[in-house]
Design a protein around this nucleic acid. Sequence first.
RNA 1: GGGGGGUUAUCCGAGUGGUCAAAGGAGUCAGACUGUAAAUCUGAUGGCGCACGCCUACGCAGGUUCGAAUCCUGCACCCCCCA
Length: 427
Amino acid sequence: MTTDILADLRWRELLHQSTDEAELAKLLAAPQSAYVGFDPTAESLHVGHMMGLMTLRRFQNAGHRAIALVGGATGMVGDPSGKSQERNLLSVDDLNANVAAIKEQMGRFLDFEGDSGARLVNNYDWMSRFSYLDFLRDIGKHFPVNVMMTKDSVKRRLEGSDAGISYTEFSYMLLQAYDFAYLFEHHDCRLQLGGSDQWGNITAGIDLVRRMHGQHLHGATWPLLTKSDGEKMGKTASGAVWLSAQKTSPYQFYQYWVNVADADAGKCLRSLTELPHEEIEALDQSRAEAPQQRQSQKRLAQWITQLVHGEPGLRAAEQATQVFFGQPIENLSDAELTEIFSDVPSQTLAKDRLGGDGLSLLDAFVEAGLVKSKGEARRRVKEGGAYVNNHKRTDFEQRLTAADLASETVMVLRSGKKKYALLRFEG
RNA sequence: GGGGGGUUAUCCGAGUGGUCAAAGGAGUCAGACUGUAAAUCUGAUGGCGCACGCCUACGCAGGUUCGAAUCCUGCACCCCCCA
């Protein structure tokens, strides 16, 4: 019932480091449990978590048991890996709220149903019961400090003259190592996965279990997903791209993937989708021969949006895309417009402002917040960058009346190529 | 304590009595081009019923003058040199 997951991961370039591959392959010949840790630092997961989620999903699909560990305890301490500064600690209440929200989102990637379903564990559940003395005696004694000092995550902080590292963060490694030991003891979990920055923490866990139980566990990492320009994946000018529809709408989410650079598209298709190898190779070819069609980006956006936001979310994103890129806005209802433009700022005005001579075009743009002054509005019209319901308006003395409504009460204003705002007329 | 320099629009930075809403650059915005990309090119860039008009702006407060970002006085902050 297991497929050759290692081969698939290798093909997708998702194997960065691992413990002995031959041993690992032998282990995975039978169903195993594999775990990935997630930091509950926010109330929603974001694109940066998708590698871990997808990796677990691949293991689950290959017939293994996926264990998602949320770091309720470790989140209170903070992982020094990849960080140049001591992090702010979260309160218990914040953490619990985050964990609850994150659980919900993981359901889109993993099947938690049934006896063989994925498991979600929170290390707070076992760590919080540990007394400091017990932990030092039972766990701490297995950690030679001289070895800990040589780990990259610690070394960097010791060498970095200004930051330093607190005892708390220094101890982080022990907590994560113990997680692995705990999961081994209680869930017979012998494999930990993580991003390449987690290698040190993973090996710490393996070492710990070897010392405590004389057992050899396994670990593997995926390469950190970065963009060709060196930036982190999943960041936009306005912040992270979240998996929560409240924080990042399906349309914005979809657009993020549509706009992935050509140079990054292949990598994303491989690491974040489950598209078959042949299809990905065909897209590689399409990208080389007809990049302007951007088939890779469209397929990528489609696949990922559907996974994260479901079929309805994908449909909404695709419909919004149509409208946002110039389709005339007619024959749509208030409800449809509201749905499509849910990301767009809107202002509500009294309906009678459309009566009589109507509302001046310039005032409408100012009211909608698209421009800061009438002077700027005038400029925009002169430049040919002012649209009402996706129709260009060139006469800045024009006045808008009820005839200019796109639907019952909504008017869609646009400044430039894609900056939209809605005016609702009520009363 | 003494001497010198500075403070200009979103930022950098010119401007030393009128022709200064203030050169130039960056940024931003728009347009063309394009693949919802990058690069490039063009234009705009204090407000106002904006074609010649008015208002607000050159650290702050006063003053000289027909007229000040520009001169004078005081104040605040910053930098440098000497003690």
